[in-house]
Design a protein around this nucleic acid. Structure first.
Lengths: 226, 226
DNA sequence: TAGATTGTTAATCGATTAACAATC
DNA sequence: TAGATTGTTAATCGATTAACAATC
């Protein structure tokens, strides 16, 4: 699977969202062409790496000009599958689930948010950003009657595996997981973790390094017990 | 800087949040020891890599037993700087900012959320999770009177750079950035991107690969124009 | 034409894995 | 003791960078 020559290497996949982000932002500029060197400046990756990443998918550049900003963005959209329409639902209408209902990121990435589910009777029938919160009791029926390509999971950790099982059982093949608990899914189901607090972790680590002046103190730690 | 032998390699930093997550979840189990092989099962990293990562910081294991689940968690907390207290504010009380006000991830990571700011008069004085939304006009005064270690930025892209400049000017050294626009900060300010839609991107790429049966069609793309 | 910048190969660098002695 | 599992070295693997011919 990882050896299929047609599979995109994970290391490239990890950089694609950032390429997308910058090329999207460049669409509003008056820039027609951008060089790999300028993209390097923006993304922090080396120009050489960028040229190599792009050449994995095809030939996009124009020698001595660079890359056509509009065209490259179109190609990145194709590579990321954004021109393919996907329907998504949100499971859990708590604070995070509601915020995700207002997220502006779906459409440009080819997603359409079609429903939100919760078990709390006080939330059911509430309308969030034009989308009515439905009872979780109706989840299976809804999936049966509507093509649903992906589900965002924003429920408390304790409920997460049970709801995952229901989603899988109902035929969902892609889960965007915001819970911070380990979930089990069959091999044919895509499980994408979104560690909402990852940035908080990394900032803490880096602040700590600065405090320690190069984390000298993080060198010979020990577990005390025998 | 990257060559300082006391600096934690970025590649290890990138794995630490996941180690933390799993060790935290293990605290509630009755497991006393965990082997690198079991951690490999949980995290998806190889046991060899895990042992090597941990040995970067010290000696935590017990031969033939594995790692003490409680003690290793304590050490990871130290490594990540979570036992050091940090005060954080949120800039932007929109849907995402409000959801972040309810985020349960601060305390366990050593953060304390102390204030939220917005420019919308309708939001000012509103209380979210016991925290009063303050006018952005009072930002500088607040930072002057309170130690603030980090700021979460959840404002519209158009306002992002201006507010970043104000935060930097006021002395903030760490920014947790949820905007999807490129921000400029001085070298001594930590800027941590949190691409909220990254998971949506990766799911789309992977769904697309499956559709294309190994993305054969993503091999010889071209920009049409001459 | 001279200058710029790509696409791509070869060289380098660094990260991961395999293996195993040490030892609990 | 026999079995398990660490810590660590050496070997391998893969990713990044340097370099440059091609060419716009």
């Amino acid at each position: 699977m990882g050896k299929d020559p047609n599979t995109i290497p994970n290391i490239i996949i990890s950089r694609l969202p950032l390429y997308y982000q910058h090329l999207k932002n460049l669409q509003n500029s008056d820039k027609e062409y951008i060089s790999s060197e300028e993209l390097a400046e923006l993304t922090g990756f080396s120009s050489s790496l960028i040229r190599k990443d792009l050449n994995h998918f095809g030939t996009f550049g124009r020698k001595s000009y660079g890359y056509d900003v509009y065209c490259l963005f179109q190609q990145i959209n194709i590579i990321m599958g954004f021109n393919y329409k996907k329907k998504v639902i949100i499971i859990g209408a708590g604070h995070l689930g509601q915020a995700l209902a207002y997220n502006k990121g779906y459409t440009e990435r080819g997603y359409q948010l079609i429903s939100i589910f919760d078990k709390n009777p006080k939330l059911i029938d509430l309308v969030i950003n034009d989308i009515e919160i439905k009872s979780i009791n109706n989840l299976e029926k809804f999936i049966e009657n509507n093509r649903v390509d992906a589900a965002a999971l924003t429920v408390p950790g304790a409920a997460a595996q049970k709801l995952t099982d229901r989603l899988v059982e109902a035929g969902i093949k892609a889960i965007w997981d915001f819970t911070e608990v380990p979930l089990k899914v069959p091999d044919d189901v895509l499980l994408q973790e979104q560690l909402i607090n990852e940035g908080l972790c990394k900032l803490s680590i880096k602040m700590n390094q600065l405090r320690n002046n190069g984390s000298k103190e993080l060198k010979d730690l020990k577990c005390q017990q025998k």
